[in-house]
Amino acid sequence: MGIIKTNHVSYDYVRVNDEGVEEEKERALEDVSIDVYPGSFVAILGANGSGKSTLARHLNALLAPSEGTVWVDGMDTSKEENVFPVRREAGMVFQNPDNQIIAGIVEEDVAFGPENIGVPTKDIWKRVEEALEKTGMAAYRMHSPNRLSGGQKQRVAIAGTLAMHPKCIILDEPTAMLDPGGRREVIETVAELNEKEGVTVVLITHYMEEVVYADHVFVMQDGKLAMEGPPREIFSKVEELQKYKLGVPQITLLAHELRKSGLDIPEGILSEEELAEAICRLR
C-alpha cells in the first residue's frame, strides 16, 4: 500500500439552511481511488471545478470523505484522533501565497508548524535552518514576507511544511497566482526536494508544463478520475486531454500535429530536445 491511498472516495458539498435541514447537495468527488507510493512525484490534473482541490483537502484531513476511505501512512483520516497526526505527515501548500503566511518574519513563519506540534525550542531552530536551506530561502530568513516575490513566498510556504518533517507534501495549485518565472522557481524547488530528499510530492495543477516532472499523473474531470498513467502516456492522448479542457504543452502539441500530418514522430514528446532529436532521426 502507498503512503496515500484513497478507496472509492466520494464527497458531497451540502448546503444547510438555518434550521439545519439539508437544502442542496452537490457531488464534488465521485468514486475516486488513487494510490501514491512513497518517494514518488504524483500530479493531479484537472480544469476548474474538476474536484482536484477537494481531493487535495481530503489528503490531509481538512475534509473527511462522505463515502469511502482515505488513508495517509496507514491512518484513516476520518477518525478524529488521526487528524493531527495525518496533518503532520502530509504537509499542505495552498494557492494564495499571501493567505498562508502567518508571521511577520520569514523564519518565524517557518517555525509556526513546529511550534504547533510542540517541538523543543532548540530543535525548532535546527529545523527552520534546514528547511530554509533546502528551499533556497536561507538568505531571506530575516525578511518580511510582504517584500518577497510570489515565487519566494511559495518557497517559504514549502519550507514551512518541510519544517514539520512531513513524509509527503501536497501542493494545491501552488503556481496559479504566479508569473512564469515564479512558477518555474516553485516547481523546480519541489522537484529537487522530491529527488534529493525523497519527499513524496502530490502536485495539483492545471498547467500541463508542470506535469513533466511527475512519475505518475491522474486526470480529473467532473469529480471523477478520467485518466491515469505516466506523463508520456497521458500526453500522447492529445485529443482526449483537450476534451477535458486541458491544454497540452506547446511542444507536445507541435509534435502531435506533425505526426498527424504524416511525419514519423513518436507520441508523448515532452521537451524541445526530444522533438529535435525525433526530427533529426527522420532523415
Binding site: N60, L62, F84, R87, R88, G91, M92, F94, N96, D98, N99, Q100, I102, E107, E108, A111, F112, G113, P114, E115, N116, I117, G118, V119, P120, T121, I124, W125, V128, G160, T161, M164
Partner: peptide, 26 residues
C-alpha cells in the same frame, strides 16, 4: 476570504490553540 484561507492554512499546519505549543523565540 483571506481570513477563511488563513484559518485553513493554520489548521493544515496543525494549529490547535496555545496548549502544548512551544516557541521558537521564548
Amino acid at each position: 476570504r483571506r481570513a477563511g484561507d488563513l484559518a485553513l492554512a493554520m489548521e493544515a499546519r496543525c494549529y490547535q490553540g496555545g496548549e502544548g505549543r512551544t516557541k521558537m523565540k521564548p
